[in-house]
Design a binder for these strands. Structure first.
Length: 515
DNA sequence: AAATGAACCTGGGGTAGAAC
DNA sequence: GTTCTACCCCAGGTTCATTT
């Protein structure tokens, strides 16, 4: 059976875990013997690998998958060109290690061509090197906080630096705190406050600012920074008040629909929001020199730009019109984004129609539905929910809207309010044909294949006539009952796979695709 | 290299709304 | 009123991006 599966081609591959089968398998003292059944099928739906695994971790399934490219080469099949998975982000790197052919002719997203970020005119960098200077500036901040309305908040950008030895992984205590506020960047070296026990004893005014919930500290992963600083002060096992007021830019970017996830880096946000490139020199960023008594100009520039970027991004967010859900009270004419059901992708733009009839194309306009006028489409192939259409069949946006603008019924939860939008079109040109793929050795350990089969790897000589006779299989496929729905799905998938397999005609960004 | 937390997967249960 | 479907939430486990 294993050999039969190994002899099948697999230019397209899909894989997934099932947890149902392991649930009905025998248990030992009530404990399941396996956690999941991992299955990989080729583009004809033929099973290529099936493995019972203790967990769904990569360590349990990738070695089995990594045998596939070896057997493909052994039997003269083309290497895997595309893999479908339900967890692209999670599986991509592991799959690319197991299937080196997935990296063939993949063009990474080009590096930034944007201008470098720089402190604008009017901004200055101020080094607070003494306790007196720190207390003076922090007290000014507290005075400004007292000046705002009762319960109001003060917003400052914050960043930390600490020394790290990349070779050993050893890292030191926080050595520099950076603030950006109202055209000034404050650099506070705190290594000087290290006590004999190794913990930091920060000036009291600085602690007051760090503990204030009303002084919001803006940054990327700033919550983690505050936790780190709190621990470096030796407060983790005490009743000391926590450092509070973190305001994360990542979730803000997600709320603004600027990214589809909150885990976004400061440099990516700088490009997305400020349209500037934030230089992050690795030799400066990860360095053991952050606790030096005197920082270099490169270090000061790095720290100042980082914290300024956080400040500028926050200011940019403040000027963007609020994005929010469409509610029953959202007025007609409000600009909206039409979002995909999965992934939160914007598929079209438009506005809420002025006339909301009781029925639209024979479908009821309920309180969860709203009629919108679509003015531009960004994803023409997006399939609109079947229950919203009189045909009761999922239909693409491009089919519904042969002429713009057009009206359609939407689920309110699929809509977000937004600012007026001008659609821009990208024009791509097909690159020249790629050179043929040359096999690359997989890093995964080949147990049996390494010794018994790998000797044949250089001789892909098994021809059709050499294949074992399968006419006497226990159940012939010709005996199977036809499944019309399944056939339709299979045809659609085959079309999708064949499309993905023939992607040489256009630029390839990744050969790991989500399903 | 290490710490942290976001994000993803799964199955199951509950709920709201639409269709009949 | 019943049935069906979609959606949401949960917990547990896993992986990965981000920070220095």
């Amino acid at each position: 059976m294993d050999q039969h599966m190994a002899m099948q081609s697999a230019e397209g591959l899909s894989h997934d875990h099932s947890f149902k089968v392991t649930g009905i398998l025998g248990k030992v003292n009530g404990v399941a013997t396996f956690g999941a059944l991992h299955t990989a099928c080729n583009n004809y739906g033929e099973c290529q690998k099936m493995t019972l695994t203790p967990t769904k971790g990569h360590d349990d399934c990738m070695p089995a998958l990594a045998e596939i490219p070896v057997t493909l080469a052994k039997y003269g099949h083309a290497p895997v060109k595309v893999i479908f998975t339900d967890n692209v982000r999670g599986d991509k790197s592991a799959l690319e290690r197991a299937f080196p052919s997935l990296l063939h002719d993949v063009s990474p997203v080009p590096s930034s061509t944007l201008a470098d970020l720089a402190l604008p005119d009017g901004w200055h960098v101020c080094r607070l090197g003494s306790t007196f200077q720190i207390n003076s500036r922090m007290n000014c901040l507290m005075d400004e906080l007292h000046g705002v309305d009762d319960g109001g908040e003060l917003f400052i950008a914050m960043d930390l630096e600490w020394p790290v030895d990349r070779e050993t992984g050893i890292y030191g205590k926080v050595s520099l705190i950076s603030f950006a506020y109202e055209k000034a960047v404050y650099l506070i070296p705190v290594a000087q406050y290290t006590q004999d026990d190794g913990y930091l004893k920060l000036p009291s005014s600085l602690l007051v600012v760090l503990r204030s919930k009303r002084i919001r500290k803006i940054g990327v992963q700033v919550k983690g920074d505050l936790t780190r600083l709190y621990n470096d002060c030796g407060f983790s096992n005490s009743d000391e008040l926590p450092f509070a007021g973190a305001l994360e830019l990542g979730p803000m970017a997600k709320d603004q629909n600027m990214t589809d996830h909150a885990r976004v880096s400061l440099s990516d946000l700088t490009e997305l929001v400020l349209r500037r490139y934030l230089p992050k020199d690795e030799s400066v960023r990860v360095s053991t020199r952050w606790d030096d008594p005197e920082l270099s100009s490169e270090q000061e520039t790095y720290a100042a730009l980082n914290v300024y970027a956080a400040w500028a991004i926050y200011k940019a967010f403040s000027t963007i019109p609020s994005v929010g859900p469409v509610t029953p009270s959202t007025p007609a004419g409000t600009h909206i984004q039409f979002m995909s059901r999965v992934g939160g992708l914007t598929v079209a733009y438009g506005y809420i129609a002025r006339h909301q009839p009781k029925q639209f194309n024979r479908e009821n306009v309920t309180k969860t539905r709203v009629v919108v006028t679509i003015s531009s489409i960004t994803v023409p192939a997006y399939l609109v929910r079947a229950e919203l259409l009189s045909s009761h069949q999922e239909t693409s946006l491009s089919t519904l809207g042969t002429q713009l603008p057009f009206s359609m019924l939407c689920c309110r939860r699929d809509l977000h309010t937004c600012a007026a939008h001008d659609q821009a079109l990208d024009i791509h040109q097909a690159p020249p044909s790629p050179p043929p793929y040359q096999p690359i050795k997989t890093p995964y350990h080949m147990s049996e294949l390494d010794t018994a089969q790998a000797v044949d790897l250089g001789e892909p000589s098994l021809m059709a006539d050499d294949r074992p006779d399968t006419s006497s299989l226990e159940q012939a496929t010709s005996d199977a009952e036809k499944d019309a729905h399944g056939l339709h799905q299979a045809e659609s998938l085959a079309e999708l796979v064949s499309c993905a397999i023939s992607i040489e005609i256009s630029e390839v960004r990744s050969r790991v695709i989500g399903v």
